[in-house]
Design a protein around this nucleic acid. Structure first.
Lengths: 207, 207
DNA sequence: ACGCTTTCGCTACGAGTCGTAGCGTAATGG
DNA sequence: CCATTACGCTACGACTCGTAGCGAAAGCGT
């Protein structure tokens, strides 16, 4: 993650156990203290590691929290639920479940905020958290096309743009509902959202 | 904003000029330093005020930045552009223009992150930044209904839920596109997004 | 078994920020 | 003119930061 160990290198290897302990301690500290009161010294103590070890592996708080939060988002999957609507509702609820974790709520938004002034950090967030989720959109669309629920793609450029658009709409809406409006992302909301995404505003509200 | 001055109270009144100077200095510091490196002492110096004056008016960094950022979002309007699609595209571009300001980018996301662990702060953000924008959705819908573009509302409960949903979708999508994907929210994207919102995924992409 | 190399834990350090207290002064209203 | 409140200024202990230096530990190659 943070600094690829050059294989075949001599000397004492970095403890892999320390890595997992540090990341777990970071998440625990995020839960108990939140982003602003989280200190690297505290994380080191929780993990049973020296503070200097932390600084040897991560450049700072930002990078550390990105890696700690990234592991929370690694488990998103897209089981085939039989219809495009059901697939979307399922992934929305999965995403919401992660955002219900305190360590994800405070950590994710904080690093995004910091990334507005740090291009390298922004790239790191995209690479380790955001991009890995985009396959969900592509899989869901392909699956819906084989079902006949969506027309096949014609222009590859338009196809890619639409996928990005859908991703921003889904992820953005769920995050905004959960963290800004701070209203529950439950099955009712997931259904309403999916209906809007599939049918649009102009179609009648099929109860 | 921060502490309602009890009118008819004796003693020296608080300087209104100091308020505006402090909030302007806060935004300037957000631009130059970003959220994490912004210190209240620095803001006080920029504003030409004593640090203690800052602490007398605001409880801390969070509350100060909320007020400073809130003023940026006060200018959102919804001019009648003739069609629902054009109205949506217009408000999306307005919102994107605000999010293009560095002081809005870093400040807004940071306080949202902090608000995940502070219910009072979350309420303050909603009251002074988020809620004042929801009338845009209501106005736009009413206007579209009088144009005949949308069917009139039947169930008042469903009507309110839909308005909240639309708000989360629009605001969330724009924020995610601008700050997470960090891709431009330009007229092309605004058009694509509006078409998706109006027609849904299942309708063919009318080029 | 023996160096060589790199990491580890520990301690200590100057620099910077925090939020508060205390004081004398300035600006209002009665 | 007096009570009241806000203001600017200074100083303070407590805390966090990121780094440096040290001896010890844990691997690798021969």
């Amino acid at each position: 993650m943070q600094s690829r160990t050059p294989v075949g290198r001599a000397g004492r290897p970095r403890s892999a156990a320390a890595d997992t302990a540090i990341l777990a301690a970071t998440r625990q500290a995020l839960v108990e203290l939140g982003w602003s009161k989280l200190t690297l010294g505290d994380v080191a103590t929780r993990a049973g590691v020296a503070k200097t070890t932390l600084y040897r592996r991560w450049a700072g708080k930002n990078e550390l929290v990105v890696d700690a939060v990234a592991e929370l988002f690694a488990e998103l999957e897209l089981p085939d639920r039989g219809s495009l609507a059901a697939d979307i509702e399922g992934v929305v609820l999965q995403f919401a479940a992660i955002l219900a974790l305190p360590e994800a709520r405070s950590g994710l938004m904080a690093v995004v905020a910091e990334s507005t002034r740090d291009e390298a950090l922004r790239a790191r967030i995209r690479a380790s958290i955001v991009e890995p989720q985009k396959h969900l959109v592509l899989e869901g669309r392909t699956r819906a096309q084989t079902r006949g629920e969506l027309p096949p793609e014609t222009d590859p450029d338009s196809s890619a743009r639409t996928a990005e658009l859908i991703f921003d709409v889904i992820a953005g809406a769920v995050v905004h509902r959960a963290l800004v409006s701070s209203e529950p992302v439950d099955m009712d909301w997931s259904r309403d959202f999916t209906r809007l995404l599939l049918n649009g505003l102009t179609s009648p509200p099929t109860t």
